[in-house]
Structure formats: structure tokens, C-alpha cells
Design a protein around this nucleic acid. Structure first.
Lengths: 154, 154
DNA sequence: AGCGTTTGAATAGCATGCTTTGCAATGTTA
DNA sequence: TAACATTGCAAAGCATGCTATTCAAACGCT
């Protein structure tokens, strides 16, 4: 019997790999969000962080890390850039000398409307081909898969 | 009427934002894949690139860029690291003096089995809570959303 | 009180992604 | 064929992730 040179019998089709699709989809979301919120002077990770801070100000870095599920070092760097860009202020925590509280600037508050509109537009563009029922199922499936991987991490 | 300080009436719930969930899910996939293929000396983007090259060798950088949907500069950097790590060789293209062909090394060929097994294990862990029908629907939904965003880019 | 442990952040170093820019090899066209 | 345009890659610069390390503040226990 003849075999083609590269047929090792263990094809791994990227088009049917959840991880591959998830990566590609997330990159497309990020590109689109960048295109839409970039003109406001925001980057995607900054927008994600602002989402938490618009809901509640004065959090510590540790709290942001827990809510956004990124590493502490990643958050520290993102906050440094946001401080540089005049979006937040870091103030010493009144009860804990190791910690700081993160406060929004007026500029950051003013961006809530335009930025959330831009993000909604991106979501709408991505989900355009789906029916309302499919959208709900899709969000639910992503949430379950995400939860499975989080559980597996500990 | 009274309003809480931060209720601007435009809540954007991250738990119901497709983009937010996609980003989080992709980060969890990347962490898991890193954990599983890292010991083989591979990084996630290198694995993604190898997926194409295991199927077909001798492609140009331009062809890889088209198949993986990343920017040319991103691919150039990834290939430089793969060359440094002894996974590929860059050889001048016989017909086009500007281009090069990318060839796998024996080391890269030997990694196909273990690496695809590791990636399959990651996919399995992520999709564990889903039924076979749900998995199929999930992949199909991701493909449709991805296609919608790609279409929108041009 | 004193000492070891834990905890909150910062820093360094690296991988991946992007945009922008530059350059040499090819193609095209007047 | 000379001039212009296109194309394939590389390099610079930056944002976001990660791991590992370090440091000071806070805690806990004897």
C-alpha cells in the first residue's frame, strides 16, 4: 500500500479544533474592538479594565485581578499604561500600606458612553448571522467551556 | 428619584458580551495549551504554525500568513523564533528571489504525534461538559461568527 | 516583642499580536 | 529599456499575556 509522504494518520484539523477556533475568533474580536475604540484613545485591555471600574471605583489591584482573571503582573502593567494615559489614579490604601486603590479620572468616566457603544457595535457585527436563540446558546456554551477550563486549572 | 453614583443606565455586562467571553475563553485555551505543549519545547503560536507545515512543507511565508490569518510581521517573528529553536529552515525560493520556502526539521516532524495529542487533550478538557451535539453546534457557531467578522473586515 | 510566613505590587524577560516603515526583487508600462 | 508600481520580507515600536523574582508591609505565633 502507498501512503503520501506526510500522511501520519493523525490529522488534526484546525477547522474542527475548539482551541484553534477560539484563538482565531478572539483575535478577530480584538482587531474589531481596536478599530472601534482605538479612535477614543483606548486599547482593548484598557476597555476591559474600565468595564470593572465604571461599575465600581476604588478597587485594589488584587480585586481587579480576581474579577478579570488575568495575572497580577499583567494587571500591574495595564494599570501603569492607563495611569500614563490619564485614565486612572493610584492612591495609597487607607487600611493596608501594601495596597493601592484605583480611581477613575474624569476623562475615563466620560468615555463610558462612547466606548460601550463601540463595543456593542462590535458584538453586534460578530453575532449578526445568528438568531436571538442562537446568540443565547452561543453565550451559554462559551460560559460553560470557560468554566470547565477554569475548574481544571486548580 | 435617587440614583446610585455610578448607575449611568448603560450597563454593559461582561458576562453577556460575546467579545469578552471570547477573549477570556481564548486565554484559558492558550494557558492550557502552554501547560501541555510547553514541556515539548513548543509555544502555542509555534504549534499553530506547525499544524500547517505538517500538512504541507515548503510553503512561503505569504502562504502561511493567508492560511493562519495573522499579519505578515507576526508570522515573520514567529518563524524567526522557530528557526532559532531548530524547528524550521528558511531556504531561498527557486523561482522568486524575494521569497523563501519554509521546511521542517526532523525535530519538528518528530513532534507531530506528541503535540497533537497534547492539543487534543486540551480540547477534550475544555469541551468535557458538552454533549457531542453541543460540541458540534459550538464549533459551527464559532465558525459562523468568525466568518462574519472576517467578511466585515474587507 | 520578635521572627518567620504570607500577601500586594513592581520589575524583568519573553511570546504573540498589531501597525508602520523600509528595502530589494519582480512586474508593468510608456 | 527606463520609470513606476507591486510584492515578499524584515525591523522597529508598542500592547497584552505569561512566569519568575524581589521587596516591603502585614500577619501570626510563640
Amino acid at each position: 500500500m502507498l501512503f503520501k509522504r506526510y500522511d501520519h494518520g493523525m490529522s488534526f484539523e484546525k477547522s474542527t479544533s475548539a482551541g484553534y477556533l477560539a484563538n482565531h475568533m478572539a483575535r478577530l474580536f480584538a482587531r474589531g474592538l481596536q478599530r472601534r475604540v482605538g479612535p477614543l484613545g483606548l486599547a482593548p485591555a484598557q476597555f476591559m479594565t474600565l468595564l470593572e471600574l465604571w461599575a465600581e471605583d476604588g478597587l485594589t489591584q488584587k480585586e481587579l485581578v480576581a474579577r478579570l482573571d488575568v495575572e497580577q503582573a499583567t494587571m500591574a502593567n495595564t494599570l501603569t499604561r492607563m495611569e500614563r494615559d490619564g485614565l486612572i489614579l493610584r492612591r495609597p490604601h487607607p487600611q493596608d500600606g501594601r495596597a493601592q486603590q484605583i480611581w477613575l479620572t474624569d476623562r475615563a468616566r466620560a468615555l463610558q458612553g462612547p466606548a460601550t457603544e463601540a463595543a456593542s457595535a462590535q458584538n453586534e457585527a460578530a453575532l449578526a448571522p445568528l438568531t436571538p436563540e442562537e446568540r443565547a446558546r452561543f453565550l451559554s456554551l462559551m460560559a460553560r467551556v470557560t468554566a470547565a477550563m477554569r475548574d481544571e486549572e486548580d
